[in-house]
């Protein structure tokens, strides 16, 4: 059992929890993730370590409520405990030697991108952050990004906040303005990452993406998280979650992500009823 030290609502669909997990906090690196089980018999949900405090012995997770599992997680209140927390899993992101980087975050992917931007900033790199959301109500972590970015482009699909448009547009403008990036780091929904990669390929800029396929154990045991990268089978939980975006077979990954669509829809409806949320 792991206690929720603090809990906060970031927007209508996104929550944040600070969990008391000293051992994990001691080892955590940006890019790594944990697996949470809210209750006895809950699903195992992989979530990126959005932040950690080695002194306080805590790790922070930021979760978007998308289905039954995350809805159940959200019912755990401050002071209560989640059943299981395991980590840090996956490989840490490689940031060594990077001098100038564009960090592109889409939606809740910003929670994964933020600790990276922070680490890059703290090691003296020039960080340009491009963050995109569907609308103003969904914006998260704006202040945090501001604090660690030399330049921040805020984009919304509908123009209700920041600039109207997609993250790829803002990124292309930055590139055309003469910014020479050592690397682009793109984290967000699969289609977003796919299009960022198509763009950076055109300009020949190395691009790292963070893949989040469906996982169970997170230790390399089930093979459910497999992806094709550079024509080879990789397990995202142990070989990743970061991969060279120009090598990833995104179409296959998107397809594999739909495997349990129907089940998830049912589970979501049941959970909505159980936790008396609006079915959206």
């Amino acid at each position: 059992m792991v206690r929720v030290k603090r809990k906060e609502k970031l927007n209508e669909n996104v929550g944040k929890m600070v969990l008391e997990a000293g051992l994990i906090a001691k080892k955590a690196q940006p890019g790594q993730f944990v697996i949470v089980r809210a209750k006895e018999d809950s699903e195992r949900i992989p979530l990126t370590i959005a932040d950690y405090d080695r002194e306080e012995g805590t790790v922070t997770i930021i979760y978007q409520i998308v289905g039954a599992g995350t809805m159940e997680l959200d019912t755990v209140q401050e002071g209560e405990s989640v059943q299981d927390l395991v980590g840090p899993l996956g490989k840490a992101s490689e940031t060594e030697g990077l001098k100038k980087v564009a960090v592109v975050g889409g939606g809740v992917g910003c929670a994964i991108a933020y600790p990276l931007a922070k680490k890059l900033h703290s090691q003296g790199a020039e960080v340009h952050s491009v963050v995109g959301f569907r609308n103003k109500g969904l914006v998260i972590l704006e202040k945090e990004f501001e604090a660690v970015s030399d330049k921040l482009c805020m984009m919304t699909d509908d123009g209700s906040y920041g600039q109207k448009g997609l993250v790829t547009q803002a990124l292309e403008e930055l590139i055309l303005a003469g910014n020479e990036y050592d690397e682009v780091i793109a984290i967000g929904p699969l289609p977003m990452m796919k299009f960022v990669c198509l763009l950076t390929k055109k300009y020949g800029i190395k691009t790292i993406v963070s893949m989040n396929p469906i996982m169970i154990d997170g230790t390399g045991m089930c093979g459910g998280c497999r992806l094709t990268v550079g024509g080879q089978t990789k397990f995202a939980c142990v070989d990743g979650p970061d991969f060279d975006g120009h090598e990833v077979d995104f179409d296959e990954a998107m397809h594999r992500g739909t495997m349990y669509k129907e089940f998830e829809a049912h589970a979501r409806e049941d959970a909505c009823r159980l936790y008396q949320k609006e079915v959206q």
Binding site: G223, G224, R226, T233, H255, R256, T258
Partner: peptide, 10 residues
């Protein structure tokens, strides 16, 4: 990698 292919472990 088609949907519906499992490892026995999974």
């Amino acid at each position: 990698s088609l949907n519906g292919v499992y490892s026995a472990n999974e």
